[in-house]
């Protein structure tokens, strides 16, 4: 597995950006259904403007999860590699209809730059 701290550090330096702060940040996405099984919520949206978020645990998310942002969109498929996905802007995580659990945790490495 790639060392995320080194990876982000190098990525930002190559683009001429200096990291001022970085941390691991888990984001919990809940799936809430009513008594009839109708799904009320299975997505989560939050702001990461002027920031860079790296998805660290793609392999732990259900196949079919879609993560949308201003700079990058990814759909996790069975053949998705263990690559670093970088997101910025308004990030939305949508769990697939096939996911029947209650919670799902996406782990991000959040990077703020000068």
């Amino acid at each position: 597995m790639i060392n995320i701290e080194d990876y982000a550090e190098r990525q930002m330096r190559r683009r001429g950006m200096e990291i001022t702060y970085a941390r691991m940040l888990p984001v919990v996405v809940r799936r809430i259904a009513d008594n009839n099984g109708q799904v009320l919520v299975n997505s989560m949206e939050f702001d990461a403007y002027n920031q860079y978020w790296y998805l660290v645990n793609a392999y732990e998310l259900p196949v079919g999860t879609r993560i949308t942002s201003d700079t990058h969109v990814t759909l996790l498929e069975t053949h998705t590699n263990d690559t670093m996905e970088e997101f910025s802007g308004k990030i939305k995580i949508e769990l697939p209809a096939s996911f029947t659990g209650n919670v799902c945790q996406a782990l991000f490495y959040q990077v703020l730059v000068k």
């Binding site: 809940r30 109708q38 799904v39 997505s43 949508e94 209809a97």
Partner: peptide, 19 residues
Amino acid sequence: PVIADAILISDNTGVFTGG
């Protein structure tokens, strides 16, 4: 970014089936 508000999106079945 408030989860509670997102519940209001709920009647939107398309978002779940249409991806």
